[in-house]
Amino acid sequence: MKNNKKILFYGYGNPGRQDDALGISFVDEMERWVRAQNIENIDFDTNYQLNIEDAEEISGYDLVIFADASMEPIKGFEFSKVERSDAQVEFTMHAVSVSFVVDLCYKMYNKAPDAYLVHLKGYEWELDFDKGLSEQAVENLQGALDFIKEKLLGIVKNSSTIIL
């Protein structure tokens, strides 16, 4: 399927911590689906956390969709536009937030992609080698996948990067 916009899906989290794997699982599933649909011009990346070099990576894309697990009291999943911000909302600076990465990209390269975040509600965070995603997390993942697949087909069809 022809696609004129350069799109990146970027999931992050620690897959060894049960539902913290939601972001990476989301991107892995999206990659399988996009390959099966044969949609051009879409890349996929995953990591334990975001960091400053990701500002350089996203600078080459028109649209970036980040995916991460959430401990917040959201329902299932949330999808939101990422606004640039230099605020340091996280307690660690060995990792940085999506808003921070997009802002750093803009300040270094005078441009930044349209960016969105899929925020997937998780429930279990234990270090347990035998347990994967919790049952509820799998449901949330599926809901987010269905939602994004539909959105992606829409923006590819319209050659747009505006989802919300």
Partner: peptide, 30 residues
């Protein structure tokens, strides 16, 4: 290490506590 890093938690919390354990001043960073 080892904390999961899901979004949106833990701003900095400053507390001044007297010898009796009473918080007499508190500031949040970020």
């Amino acid at each position: 290490s080892c904390a999961t890093h899901a979004l949106g938690k833990m701003p900095m919390d400053f507390k001044i506590v007297d010898k009796n354990g009473k918080v007499i001043n508190q500031k949040f960073k970020n």
